[in-house]
Design a protein around this nucleic acid. Structure first.
Lengths: 209, 209
DNA sequence: GTCTATATGGAGATAGAC
DNA sequence: GTCTATCTCCATATAGAC
């Protein structure tokens, strides 16, 4: 019979349905009718409560990493940790990231993506970085991090996925770490090697622990 | 008036119009009518010649990078060079990359993106890499490269763009180089602070095969 | 080969009775 | 606040006359 609900409950039902559908099928792949059906209400109510499909998207699809306590580790292991947190994040983050990315043809969604990238991928790192060029390094790190998610989630590189979480954390984390705490040439007591071009011995997959 | 043209000319006109519009406005943002209008023909002809909008997209939107400049560069400067080539690539690559990315909700377009990523970003690097784990390293490199384009073109990180081409090449190139020729501790000069002075503008001429 | 006309379906959004 | 009914617009795709 689809009994009437209170206004607040309806609003919540719409929000929940929208969040889920947008996350799973993106902005274009979700219709107002789909949302209404899932919330078991009339399509007109969706517009009535949120004004438009676009506003509803912007209200429900937010990228947040609130595992920030997990990032409370020494700076020299922040790289690994950050990758770890991302890879262990649930389906939520993945879906939201994909929805924002694929919807970024829409200017408003593009703005939201831009802000989300800043908040989730750049800012948490920049806060920890010392040095005058901390901002640039954090932004390069944001690009690097985004690249991993792009390769795994958007491209869906099967061979990269098959590498497995632990090795990805180790290798890509080390790469990120390079950006957070660039290894200076002199600290580890290496002699001032003047011959830069050395024929590469193979392997050595872990430049830094 | 819209006088008649030959079949081949019409087909070409459609193809050209589609390539341009898809690249500028994406798959969802381009209608068959838009394409027909730009080609100055009837919308029905678009379908008649190419079967569907989707097939037309797949036929006209291809990501190709000219990897010739990468062939003769020494392995230890391939990282910088690769970033250079990407950043100097024209509006074409950017548009195609964005169209594929934003259209990747469509399974066929996702497949195309996957293949393009492999061909353009992974394969050219893997060819040059020695070692048993060359494949993995090339894929990690592909992720890294994709991340830069993502940050610059999708997110549109203004502060990162403002860094400028040369410094991006230098810093992000050094990062990529870490993956191509890993070094336990820095040997090839400071990784990122200033341009490490081995420009090697264009290498020795070499016959194409 | 080309074009006119149209089929068919789905979208977002609205009007107005209850 | 909610729902029924509908509006308007636009999409891809097709049928059939020239």
């Amino acid at each position: 019979m689809a009994r009437q609900r209170s206004g607040a409950a309806t609003r919540e039902a719409i929000r929940a349905a929208a969040a889920r559908l947008f996350r799973d099928h993106g902005f274009a792949g979700t219709s107002v009718r789909d949302i209404a059906a899932r919330a078991d209400i009339d399509p007109a109510l969706v517009i009535r409560h949120f004004g438009s499909k676009e506003l509803l998207f912007l209200e429900t699809v937010r990228l947040t990493i609130d595992d920030e306590p997990l990032l409370d580790v020494p700076l020299d292991s922040l790289g690994r940790r950050f990758i770890e947190v991302l890879l262990d994040s649930g389906e939520d983050i993945r879906g939201v990231y994909l929805a924002l990315l694929r919807g970024s043809g829409n200017p408003q969604i593009a703005d939201r993506l831009s802000a989300s990238h800043e908040t989730a991928f750049v800012e948490p790192l920049r806060r920890r970085l010392p040095g005058a060029d901390a901002d640039v390094r954090a932004r390069l790190a944001g690009a690097l991090v985004g690249g991993l998610l792009y390769a795994l989630w958007v491209v869906g590189d099967e061979h990269l996925i098959a590498v497995g979480r632990d090795e990805l954390v180790s290798r890509y984390g080390a790469l990120l770490q390079q950006l957070l705490t660039p290894v200076p040439t002199g600290t580890t007591g290496t002699p001032g090697a003047t011959a830069p071009t050395s024929p590469r011995p193979t392997a050595a997959p872990r430049p830094r622990r």
